[in-house]
Design a protein around this nucleic acid. Structure first.
Length: 284
DNA sequence: CCCCAGGTGGGAG
DNA sequence: CTCCCACCTGGG
């Protein structure tokens, strides 16, 4: 597999190495694997890439032979949400707990995945560890997705999943999630629902639809909306965030945590969630 | 061998 | 509405 010579992503955001890793491989996406110092290989949409961090904290990319570098550079910048000013969100934030987490992860970002990728990956994620989720998603891509470059597979679309024999999904080590995924794919196909439309829908309406899908509850719906549709008001509460919210704010239930986040963090709750998540996971 | 993990669904209380 | 536990599977 021949990669192009590395080229710098113009207008790449600045990353500290630790935040680069946390962003790509910290639970937002399950499609990246570390291949060396500050280097990750992975796939998003129909792009395969190796992403590197140069000495100035800028992202450089290598893409497979035959990939249009200019087009890929633009897509990678979008994927890294290059346009958004994250520092502004936490600068002068009134909550010192948020400021403290932001200081530990000053260049953390939210990846802009597609709704389709997020729906598939987060249905696979329930009650699993990151390494296991990555394995499932990778198997799913290998068995049902298109090979977009040698040994790089895109995720399958919902038609493919809907039509796949359940045994194939079982072979992806999905366990009980295999039925969730197949039922969800079938529903999306029969509804003629375009996942991309989630981006345009208001948060509540989008969430309502997602909750009608099999294997999608509050937590998974919020992950899909935050990581797959850039809805920053989404505040996914998993066990880590539950712990964090209990420790920092004495909030005992996911419901309380969501209500608090919506009220106190508002339109940027999702980013603050990611900071608190990274923080409590790094020193529990 | 036993236990649980970055949840959800469905039934009981 | 809130509990509670089964659900697959791999790894500790």
């Amino acid at each position: 597999m021949n990669f192009s010579v590395p080229f710098e992503i113009e207008n790449s955001p600045f990353f500290l190495p630790s935040d680069f890793k946390e962003t790509l491989d910290g639970g937002q996406s399950f499609r990246w694997r570390e291949v060396g110092e500050n280097a990750f290989e992975g796939v998003f949409e129909d792009i395969a890439a190796r992403l590197l961090l140069n000495g100035r904290g800028k992202v450089c990319a290598q893409v497979p032979e035959g990939f249009d570098q200019e087009k890929c550079a633009k897509k990678i910048a979008d994927f890294l949400d290059a346009e958004r000013d994250y520092a502004k969100i936490t600068k002068n934030h009134k909550d010192e707990r948020v400021v403290k987490a932001a200081k530990r992860f000053p260049t953390l970002r939210i990846l802009r995945q597609t709704p389709q990728e997020a729906i598939i990956c987060f249905i696979c994620s329930s009650s699993k560890r990151i390494v296991q989720i990555k394995q499932c998603v990778s198997l799913l891509s290998e068995k049902l997705g298109d090979e977009i470059a040698p040994n790089f597979h895109a995720l399958p679309n919902f038609e493919k999943i809907a039509d796949a024999p359940i045994e194939i999904l079982r072979d992806c080590k999905l366990g009980f999630r295999a039925d969730y995924l197949k039922r969800t794919a079938q529903k999306i196909v029969s509804d003629k629902f375009n996942p991309e439309s989630l981006r345009e829908m208001p948060y509540q309406e989008a969430k309502k639809y997602l909750l009608s899908l099999s294997g999608v509850g509050e937590k998974v719906a919020d992950c899909i909306l935050l990581f797959g549709a850039a809805k920053f008001e989404a505040f996914p509460v998993d066990t880590w965030i539950s712990k964090s919210m209990a420790a920092l704010y004495d909030l005992k239930t996911p419901k309380d945590a969501r209500a608090f986040a919506s009220k106190q963090f508002g339109a940027n709750a999702g980013y603050i969630q990611q900071l608190l998540f990274a923080d409590i996971r790094s020193n529990p």
